[in-house]
Design a protein around this nucleic acid. Structure first.
Lengths: 302, 302
DNA sequence: AAACGTTACGAATCGCGTAAGAATT
DNA sequence: AATTCTTACGCGATTCGTAACGTTT
C-alpha cells in the first residue's frame, strides 16, 4: 500500500469530497476513490459516510484520521532531521576515551570543531582501553581515543603521536641518584634489574598500562613488591611524591618536581596515541574533520 | 512503498543481518535487501553500516528506527481500536437532544443499552430543535432526539410516540372553571377565542414549541398578551402555578395540581417524538439497538 | 445538465523471487 | 567453501488513468 494514501485521506476529510481532494493532490478521482475503497476494505469498515452533500468521517474514520495526523507529523519531523544529517548540519559523533586522557584532549579539540559543525553533538563514553574494542565492534561508538600497544586488525588507526611509559621514583629512594639533574627533560633508561623487590603502586589490572608493565617485567624477570593498585594516574603520582613507592605513568604527566625523578624503559615501552575506528566504518565528513584537528592540536601541544 | 518495510527495518536492526531478518519475515534476502536499498536511496543516506560482522545502524538509522517504532505503535493501536469498532465492542454514538426532554429519555434508555454494549460511549450535544438539523447534516451527530412538527425530507424519522401540547391555566383565572375536575387526566379542548388578550408566558422564540403556538394562534386569530419568554419549561410551569399568566408545555409535564388546570388544543396541536437521522446515514448495530430500546422504554412509560 | 462516487479495463509501475555475482572470512 | 550483501532479470500484483455508468440535485 502506497504511503500517499495517508495524505490523501486527510485531503478527503479537509475537502469533504473525493473529487476535490483528487484535484488538490494531482491524481484522478478514480485513483483517489480506489485508494479509499481499498483502505476501507483492508480495515473492514467504512471511514466515511457518503452523502451527496459531503464525505463525513465515521467514528472509525475519525480515529483513523487522528492516527494519520500523528504518523505524518512523526514522518515529516524524521525526514527533516535526516535531511539535516545528510547535509551535516546536525549529527552525532559517538566516541570513547579513558577517564584520564581523553577528556584532556577533547576539551582542546572541541571548540575548534564546534566552530565548523555547531549542530553536531558528541556522545562520549568513558571506558578502559580493553572495553573500547567492544564498543567499536558493536557500533555503540564510531571513534575511540585509544593508546595502542598491540593493534587489532579489525581497526584502522590514526596516529596522533607516540608516548613513552615513564617510571617515577621518590627522591628518597637510593635509585633516584642515578637519574641525574634533569630527568624530567629526558628520563634516562632504567636498568630493570634494580627494580626487583622495590615497592610499587601499580596501575589497576583493568588498564592497558598494567598489561604492558607486566609484560616488560616478566621479560626482564623483575618481581616488584606491589603495595596496591589504582586506576587513577593522579593517585599514582601522589603516592610517588609522598615517598611511599615507585609508579609508572605516561610521559605526558612528567613535570619538574622536587619530590620525584623520572626514568624511561627505552624504546621497548612506548605506545601510540591513536584514534581508532572499525575498518568497515564509513567516516562522515565531521568525523574526518574531528580526526584532522585532533592531530593538529596534538602536534601544537608538543 | 510498501508498509512492510517499516517492520522489516526493525527486523534488520534486531537480527543485525539482512539474511536473518529476511528469514524471520518470510521473504527472500533479495527482497529485504532491495527494500533497504530503496529506502536508503529515497532518504539519501545509509541507515546501516555494512559490516560482514553485523548491520549497524548509522546515526540517521537510529533516528529512523526510533520513528518507525513510534509509527508502528500508533498503527497497531489504531488497527486494534478500529477492529473493536468493527465488532461493536467499542464505539461512539453521537446524539443530540433538547436540554429538557432528551436527558429524561436518555437516563431511562442508557442502562439497558449499556448492558449489551458496555464499550460504546455516548457523545451528547444539547441543542434546540432548529439547530439539530445542522448537527445531523454536517455529521457532528448521527442521531437526534427530536420533536417533529414538520418533517424534513433529508431525514428518516423513527416515531417513539405522539405528544399533545397542553395549555396551563392558573386556577384564579376565570377560564379555569371550564376545565372541570380532572383536567390533568384528560384536558378538555379549549375554545381558542377565549385566549385573546390573556397574559401568557411564552416559550422562547428559538424553540419549536413557540413556532407551533404562533402558528395555531395566527390561524385562530388569537392575539395573546406576552409577558415574557423562557426556554425553560420549568419556569413556565412555575409562572402558571403562581397565578401570573397562562403557558404552554408538552403533555408529559402534566401533573395533578391545586394551582393550575389544563386544556388541550385538540388534534391540531400535537407533535411526534422521534429519533431522526440522515437518510444516507448507515445505522450501526448499536445505533439500531438504541432506537429499538428507546421505543420500548417510551411505550412502557405510558 | 452538472456534479460526484463507483466500476471496468488496459497500461505502466512496483515488488518479489530466482539466480548469479562480488566480497569477506 | 561458506556466508552475506548486491545486482540482473522476469513474472505477477498493484496502482493509476481513461472512460463509462449510476445516482442525486
Amino acid at each position: 500500500m502506497n504511503l500517499h494514501i495517508l495524505e490523501n485521506i486527510l485531503a478527503i476529510e479537509r475537502e469533504g469530497s473525493i473529487t476535490k481532494a483528487a484535484d488538490k493532490m494531482y491524481i484522478t478521482q478514480s485513483a483517489m476513490n480506489q485508494q479509499l475503497l481499498k483502505l476501507e476494505e483492508d480495515l473492514g469498515i467504512p471511514l466515511f459516510t457518503r452523502s451527496n452533500r459531503k464525505m463525513i468521517p465515521t467514528y472509525a474514520g475519525k480515529i483513523y484520521i487522528e492516527a494519520v495526523k500523528k504518523i505524518l507529523a512523526i514522518h515529516n519531523e524524521t525526514y527533516s532531521r535526516i535531511r539535516d544529517i545528510a547535509e551535516f548540519r546536525t549529527g552525532e559523533i559517538s566516541i570513547t576515551h579513558t577517564p584520564e586522557r581523553g577528556a584532556l584532549n577533547f576539551t582542546n579539540v572541541y571548540p575548534v570543531f564546534h566552530e565548523k559543525y555547531p549542530g553536531i553533538v558528541f556522545k562520549i563514553y568513558e571506558a578502559r582501553v580493553k572495553e573500547m574494542e567492544k564498543l567499536l565492534l558493536d557500533g555503540t561508538v564510531s571513534l575511540a581515543h585509544v593508546s595502542v600497544y598491540k593493534r587489532n586488525p579489525e581497526f584502522e588507526y590514526v596516529i596522533l603521536g607516540t608516548e613513552k611509559v615513564v617510571l617515577g621514583v621518590p627522591v628518597t629512594n637510593p635509585i633516584a641518584e642515578l637519574a641525574g639533574e634533569k630527568s624530567w627533560k629526558k628520563p634516562p633508561v632504567i636498568d630493570t634489574s634494580l627494580l626487583s623487590g622495590q615497592k610499587f603502586v601499580m596501575n589497576d589490572s583493568s588498564t592497558l598500562m598494567r598489561d604492558i608493565i607486566d609484560d616488560i617485567f616478566k621479560k626482564n624477570k623483575v618481581k616488584p613488591n606491589v603495595l596496591f593498585e589504582s586506576v587513577s594516574t593522579g593517585t599514582i603520582l601522589s603516592v610517588v611524591k609522598n615517598q611511599i613507592g615507585l609508579g609508572c605513568f605516561p610521559q605526558s604527566y612528567v613535570k619538574p618536581s622536587k619530590e620525584m625523578v623520572y626514568f624511561s624503559f627505552g624504546e621497548a615501552l612506548q605506545w601510540e596515541l591513536c584514534i581508532a575506528y572499525r575498518k568497515d566504518h564509513y567516516l562522515s565528513e565531521p568525523e574526518k574533520y574531528y580526526i584532522e584537528i585532533s592531530k593538529d592540536v596534538y602536534d601544537k601541544g608538543k
